[in-house]
Design a protein around this nucleic acid. Structure first.
Lengths: 77, 77
DNA sequence: TCACATTTGTACGTATGTATC
DNA sequence: AGATACATACGTACAAATGTG
């Protein structure tokens, strides 16, 4: 999967949607780590800030928990 | 008022708190504009991204409404 | 209609701090 | 001590929407 820079959906929302889909499908189970900021940067070729923003969307939705020095994980619920 | 770069509260949260206080006190009434990103930059000497982040905090709290091309306003409620 | 200024939205890159492993 | 990872902050650029003249 890769992001589309031409469409009207900004990359950070596309990336958030991709990860959200993997959570909803169960591929990324509660407690499991989601891609790190660095991994997103490498995988989708976006800037670090854009990768962070994608994770912030999921965090604000309560889907993931971001823990400094540890990582970002699918929320337990 | 100015931000403290030494304390343990990051500048973007300090700025958010200052604006929140002005809303809570009624100085900034519902429907009225709050300081724009550019004004925050000029007033507190922070980067644009930091000023934005302060407003995002208030937006996420439902205290303000940010409208592209127009400005940021105290939410009506 | 058009041009312009203002304002928020998005995105890039970089640096430093802090916490965990 | 070192590597990894998130948090914060800096600066910059362009896009998109709005209002005004």
């Amino acid at each position: 999967m890769s992001v589309d820079h031409e469409g009207d959906v900004p990359p950070y929302l596309q990336i958030a949607a991709l990860i959200r889909a993997r959570i909803d499908s169960g591929e990324l189970a509660p407690g499991k780590p989601v891609p790190s900021v660095a991994q997103i940067v490498g995988e989708y070729g976006v800037a670090r800030t854009t990768a962070q923003k994608a994770l912030w969307v999921l965090r604000d939705e309560g889907l993931v928990r971001m823990v400094k020095g540890w990582g970002t994980f699918v929320a337990e619920r």
